[in-house]
């Protein structure tokens, strides 16, 4: 892949919206043309070159474009918005709305990610090595569906309201997850290797939550079914291990308590709690 390296010159005083940072916008452009791409600071139109030093080589193919961002980008929003192919690596933290409506390709963030990122994520692979904020991989208010496909791996903790209105796809969180996980979930799978906060699966219709830790407070609208060893979980983890090199510190072929709910909704969702 052809690498284009953007190094933050100095942290912006105010957040900037840099939705132009996508392989689609960078491919076919010279470094000088990339520097002239628009970013927004409030209502002011500015250039990418005002904030970043741009190095690397010109890439002709979008799928062969690898953007590497260096620095603390906590105030840089919308990185990788709607990207469909190629790769972005953030060597540091990333701001809000990262991978917004992402359609394909891969984003790797080596630091933490702010709230409202991966909103209405459609496809591709997103790997976060740090923690993520609230409303991650959720739906925008008023929209009927949140995450609609793809795979998100969070190696740290996740905040509140992760995967709200999730429709399809897989999210795996290595550490703990906050409150209101997968509220109004329609389908898909969320796996937490750590603890989960209050009320997971509130108003979920279908979909699966798998918890390898403890759940702080289960809703009374989830009903215990049985304790058994579902085969699909073994299948899931073998695929995750082979395709994404995700390894879990437990024997996944153990026993799980199954609860179904939310019975105040359709009630075909399920929560599995690992029992060893």
């Amino acid at each position: 892949m052809k690498k284009i390296i953007l190094t933050l010159k100095k942290e912006p005083a105010l957040p900037i919206e840099a939705e132009t940072i996508t392989p689609e916008n960078f491919a076919g452009r010279t470094l000088d043309e990339i520097k002239k791409l628009i970013v927004w600071r409030g209502k002011r139109k500015e250039e990418l070159g005002d904030y970043f030093k741009v190095e690397g080589e010109k890439s002709e193919e979008v799928s062969e474009t690898h953007i590497i961002l260096k620095g603390d980008l906590s105030k840089v929003k919308y990185i990788g918005k709607q990207m469909a192919t190629g790769k972005i690596t953030v060597k540091g933290n990333a701001g809000m709305h990262l991978a917004d409506e992402m359609r394909g390709g891969e984003i790797v963030v080596e630091g933490n990610v702010s709230d409202w990122s991966a909103t209405e994520f459609r496809n591709g692979i997103l790997r976060i090595k740090g923690n993520v904020g609230n409303m991650f991989a959720s739906a925008y208010p008023g929209n009927p569906r949140g995450m609609r496909g793809g795979i998100i791996v969070i190696e740290g903790k996740a905040g509140n309201s992760l995967a709200r209105k999730m429709r399809r796809g897989t999210i795996i969180v290595y550490d703990s997850v906050g409150d209101n996980l997968a509220a109004q979930m329609i389908a898909g799978t969320v796996i937490s290797l750590g603890n989960i906060g209050n009320r997971p699966g509130m108003l979920m219709k279908r979909g699966t939550i798998i918890c390898f830790g403890k759940i702080q407070e289960m809703l009374p609208t989830f009903i215990y079914d049985n304790t058994y060893s579902p085969l699909f979980i073994r299948y899931y983890f073998k695929e995750l291990r082979e395709k994404l090199n995700i390894r879990v510190p437990v024997k996944v072929e153990g026993l799980y308590e199954r609860y179904h709910g939310d019975v105040s909704e359709l009630g075909k969702g399920e929560i599995f709690i690992y029992k060893g």
């Binding site: 795979i151 399809r168 897989t170 799978t189 279908r206 699966t208 579902p230 085969l231 699909f232 299948y235 899931y236 695929e239 395709k243 075909k268 399920e270």
Partner: peptide
Amino acid sequence: QISKKIFGRRLWR
């Protein structure tokens, strides 16, 4: 029955 789409393959439980 419950379906799961895992890495592009749909399976049924």
